[in-house]
Design a protein around this nucleic acid. Structure first.
Lengths: 247, 247
DNA sequence: TTTATTTATTTTGTATACAATTCATATGTA
DNA sequence: TACATATGAATTGTATACAAAATAAATAAA
């Protein structure tokens, strides 16, 4: 009996991490950005957020710095915090990193995933499809990210999971800025393909499907066009090259 | 002439990012941990650090939170900040992630590296060897990390570079805790092998050498032994399984 | 009108003050 | 002695106050 239930003076298990104020506000802002309710470039004024969440600027500043380290918020010194506006180059970087990391995650996940994991993944895709049918694009974007994140958890690496979480939220910002059509249609099928390859332990196919999935995503962006607005420096420089100044 | 040097009312290039107080203190603590002058488990009291660097706790807190997000400092709520003590599981995770990311970095670097990059890498290894001969272990550890980091920069991905920087600093903590002998001897040769494969554009060999290099590193740790001290919970639980309680 | 300069307002960066919690020491009890 | 409890000191969490910087508005000059 002592096997299943330790008896005597045994220390309690590591205490449940009750969410701090910081965590709570962070996840609110994080989710808002993930669901694309906060557009890139939006200013996140400390005082405003403090009043919204009923706390002082102290805790808001901590949250903003945390989001900045996750690269979904950009802090300009003495100027404030803004929702990040990834450049085309950064967008490419993020997708490149995702291909690298998620290929590794697939290889790990294929070894470790259990039948219950498969079932969970199937449920998640079903929920995705539901949101998609309901036209709830915001929720679907988050759910789609959750699917990839679940694979990382199955792979069993907290480190890679943390990195992927960042890359996924940055992808969300990238999609807002650079997506042309709505990719929504085929995405669920590709997720189902991934589950399929996973349940058959077909590593080669699983990796291929995942990489194709991410490349499709990148190819549906138009990153080649002029950048959104940030580097009007380059624009003016080009201007001064073409036409001589008046003086 | 207007081609090479823009003439008239052209905006200045993005201003050079002058280091803030935060950056300065961060890099001091970061380097101290990287060079293994700050041992794992060391308490980083806010007031103490504030007096050392001549600033208030406000800025120290920001630095500590930043270090915590980089996983080289652990913050226990209401209890303070401590230099991280990676568990054996975490150590394995970090090396696993490094293998994944640095393989990708090698593939990218091999396409992009120029002769001057090769020369730079050779200089860096020479400096490593110098520190090694001088017995300056602390500096060597940092230089060894800088070598890997340089490869990431050559690969051209800021995102992957940032992740690798974190993984390298965590590796430094892992080495302090779990290294048995001194790996120092062969490490420089392995770095030279990497440069060799890189300059010959031999992708397969470059990847192999890098993976072996990292696996060698992990194999020289003893992660299987009893964990340092953190989970004495598990220890007591095991105890209660083996021997019946007295009452 | 357009542009430049000055003034006023707002916002961020940092230090400090106070409340809440934890840690260390001391006191009491078996 | 060993253990538990209570008291005091030290440390962290948060709010506020003030200085520095940036933004906005207003005034002056072309």
């Amino acid at each position: 009996m002592s096997r299943t239930a330790p008896t005597a003076a045994v220390a309690r298990a590591p205490e449940a991490p009750r969410k701090s104020q910081n965590d709570l506000i962070h996840s609110q802002v994080f989710t808002a950005i993930l669901e694309q309710r906060l557009a890139p470039g939006t200013k996140l004024a400390e005082d405003t957020l403090g009043q919204i969440f009923g706390v002082s600027r102290t805790v808001i500043r901590a949250v903003l710095q945390r989001l900045a380290h996750e690269r979904i918020v950009r802090i300009h010194p003495n100027r404030g915090a803004f929702v990040a506006e990834p450049s085309p180059e950064e967008a490419h970087e993020v997708l490149e990193a995702r291909r690298l990391i998620e290929e590794g995650i697939m290889r790990l996940a294929i070894q470790k995933c259990s039948p219950s994991d498969i079932a969970m993944l199937q449920d998640m895709v079903a929920a995705e499809q539901k949101s998609l049918d309901a036209g709830d694009h915001q929720v679907w974007v988050r759910q789609s990210g959750d699917f990839h994140l679940r694979l990382a958890r199955i792979a069993g690496s907290e480190t890679l999971t943390a990195y992927l979480r960042e890359l996924i939220s940055r992808t969300s910002l990238i999609i807002v800025q650079y997506q042309k059509g709505n990719l929504s249609s085929c995405a669920c099928d590709e997720h189902l393909d991934i589950i399929d390859a996973l349940s058959e332990k077909d590593e080669a196919r699983a990796v291929t499907v995942m990489l194709d999935h991410l490349s499709t995503l990148e190819n549906n962006l138009h990153l080649s066009g002029e950048s959104p607005k940030s580097d009007l420096y380059a624009i003016f420089q080009q201007q001064s090259e073409n036409q001589e100044p008046a003086s």
